[in-house]
Simulated scan of single mutants.
Amino acid sequence: MMDWTDRHCRVFHRKLSRRAELYTEMVTAPAVVHGDRDRLLGYEAQEHPVVLQLGGSDPAQLAEAAKIGADYSYDAINLNCGCPSDRVQSGSFGAVLMEKADLVADCVAAMIAAQPRPVTVKCRIGVDDQIAEEVLPAFLEKVAAAGVRHFVIHARNAWLQGLSPKENREIPPLNYELAYAMKRAFPHLELCLNGGVAGLEAVPAHLEAGLDGVMIGRAAYHDPAKVLLGADSRLWGAQDPVATAQEAALAMRPYIADHLAKGGRLHHITRHMLGLFTGQPGARSWRRMLSEAGGRRDAGLADYDAALAQMSGVPAG
């Protein structure tokens, strides 16, 4: 989710679910070590539980980045071994690491030794023409032996040449059965599924198949209500923080007001909220009004309230 999500997006998603575990966009270890840490790693306390997702392939550098992440009190540190973009491949991390299980084991061992937070791994089932049924169990065994107990498996091969990142999320066939088989083969590991899950209604079947969780990325971004609204009651038997998309939008109002008061722009937050009313009457006007306001530096709460009022028929505030 590089260039998509940020701390504002996570706060918004947290208004829809208190229990879902939120991930940062992938941040490279060199950026964490040498860059503006508060800008890259800062977040709101309400985001917990939140996981820092790192990209890298140098054990010492990843260890230092993981320690910095722990100092920022992230609940876990995740190593991305699944992203197929050219930008990631050029840095020798992401999905290309599926070909380097020994290196991944060295990386996670260093990350675990450097700090107290759990270290997790997000991976593919293989890359290019690798035989996933052979590669994935060997990868899990090797990396688990280094101390990782939680994996998120994107149930497709990644093609490192010839497919764009978008095509890599759509063209390689899904193999959910292999993910289920890995849970049977490694019952002591926490294995979660990623890939092709478009809404909350699809989650229970994967849990009933034995998996420990489901990660949903772009679907949660484009249609957050479909994925997150009602998740707490349905999956955890807990009270939902809001009952409707309108309530979620109202719950964001104090956060938006605070951001504006600190000199931030409305668009910083509302660009992540354009899909909140997907499928509902008025959704197009909501997107249009917020998008038009986002082009103005002086856009404020009045613009947000106007967009919300046309959705509910009742002035916000």
Rank of each mutant, 00 (worst) to 15 (best):
R287W: 04
G264H: 04
V11I: 15
D3A: 10
T120Q: 11
L276V: 13
Q130A: 08
V104N: 14
D36K: 02
P187E: 08
D305T: 00
V135Y: 00
A245N: 03
D71T: 06
Y180K: 07
M182N: 10
L97R: 13
W4Y: 15
D36N: 15
A251Y: 11
L54S: 11
L22W: 08
K166E: 12
I256G: 09
G300I: 00
A66R: 13
D128T: 07
L79I: 02
A110F: 14
L229A: 05
I125S: 06
G313M: 05
L41A: 13
L301N: 09
H13C: 07
G56L: 05
V242L: 11
V227Q: 06
P165I: 01
G69D: 08
G230V: 13
Y304V: 01
P84K: 10
T24A: 12
V143T: 15
A231R: 11
E133Q: 12
G94N: 11
L41I: 15
R19P: 07
A63R: 14
N168I: 00
L260Q: 05
G42C: 03
S291A: 13
Y304C: 04
G42A: 04
M182I: 05
E208C: 00
D232K: 05
H259W: 15
G317K: 12
A243R: 14
D128C: 06
G82R: 09
S164P: 10
P224I: 04
Y180A: 03
R288H: 12
A60N: 03
P118M: 13
E64C: 04
D71I: 02
H259D: 09
F12Q: 10
H268G: 00
A109N: 01
G147K: 04
Y43C: 08
A179I: 01
G42E: 06
L41F: 09
K262R: 15
L228D: 14
D86E: 14
N80G: 06
E201K: 10
Q61F: 01
W4G: 00
H206N: 03
E167M: 12
L140V: 02
L211T: 02
D102H: 07
